[in-house]
Simulated assay, not measured.
Amino acid sequence: MDQPDVVPVTARAPAETSLAKSAAAASITVAVVLVSLKAWATWKTGSAAMLGSLADSALDLVASLVTLFGVWYASQPADREHRFGHGKAESIAALVQVMLIALSAFGILLRSTQQLLAGARVEAPAEGIGVSVVAIVLTFALLAWQRYVVARTNSVAIKTDHAHYQSDLLLNLAVIAALALDSYAGITGADPVFGLAIAGWLGWNAWQASREALDHLLDREWPEAKRRRFVEVAARHPELANLHDLRTRTAGHVDFAQFHVDLPEEMTVGQSHDIIERVEEDLLREFPGLELFIHIDPAGHVDEPGNTLVEQDEFAALASGEDGA
């Protein structure tokens, strides 16, 4: 008897969307305040490091606006044209942030090099240091809220924004050190040297932040530990055999998984449905919000001879301690 495909649909939690939007809005608010303060401090000091910090905060503002749009668009329900939802919008937003961070790093690099060659000195260091201290306090508060939101939503866009603002802490400390060394210790060139270091740090941060977004856009499989846990939960059901063609991915904060599994050919549609319902409930309890697709094969059926990915028995790999992927 032919067996049914089972495709449960799970809704995204409105609370998670609200949290992600609140983090993006908080990021925009902090960026507006910091751009205003740092523009004034740059005008007062003429510091290359402060200019770099200003450029970074200005791009923070643009990136945060992109993040807010990405989070909002990703939260839209699936429709006729996007039946898997819009979760990848978060990854696109994250990549836009990465490009802005890279541009910021390049601009700071050029300005710092010019300042270093010209032997320029900073003025009014106290104002610049005061603004940097305010920036550190505001950034600490924002990071705390972002950590809370990421822990509950796993939003890749907020993660990227969080990574960027983490670098802002070091950036503002570097500005303080540059101003102090240049003005109070009399070390000529300290300010542009710190500016160059900031540019390098931002470039590295852009590279790191791009990796997860690209993984989501390219439908990279889940980490092996998470994938293995998924198979372990399914293996709690002894009625199932030969779990194969397991494919997993993540889009935004939504996980997707699909697999084939064998059931006895003589089993009725109703019996197989009841078994798969229990399997689904168990997996969704362990992986909340998961979008799950399960295809049933009659025992002994071969899907695609020669395709090692399709025919890999995940239960057998789990029992032998091998990687299933």
Rank of each mutant, 00 (worst) to 15 (best):
V62N: 07
M1S: 12
R220V: 06
A24Y: 06
L243A: 10
G186S: 10
G200P: 05
A180E: 02
D60C: 15
D60V: 13
A317Q: 04
A89M: 15
F259P: 01
A325G: 00
S320K: 11
G186V: 10
L179T: 03
A78T: 11
G128T: 00
A11M: 08
G306Y: 03
T139R: 03
L173K: 01
A74H: 05
V150N: 04
P14A: 00
A25R: 13
A93L: 12
E16K: 13
H273F: 09
S155F: 01
D5N: 13
G200A: 12
E239L: 10
R229V: 04
S22V: 06
A48K: 05
R220G: 09
L142I: 00
D282I: 08
D219S: 10
R285Y: 05
E224M: 09
A241Q: 10
N307V: 11
G300H: 10
A26G: 15
I296E: 06
A199S: 14
L68E: 09
N242H: 13
F315E: 05
K38S: 08
A299D: 04
S183G: 01
V279R: 01
A15K: 09
A157R: 04
T67A: 15
E265W: 04
A124S: 11
G186T: 12
V122M: 04
A74M: 14
T153E: 04
S53V: 03
H273A: 05
I176H: 06
V9E: 13
Q3F: 14
W201V: 15
E232G: 09
V133R: 01
L214F: 14
I108L: 11
T113A: 10
K159C: 08
Q208V: 10
T29A: 13
V269A: 00
K44R: 14
Y165S: 04
I129R: 04
R147W: 06
D274Q: 14
P125Q: 02
G128R: 02
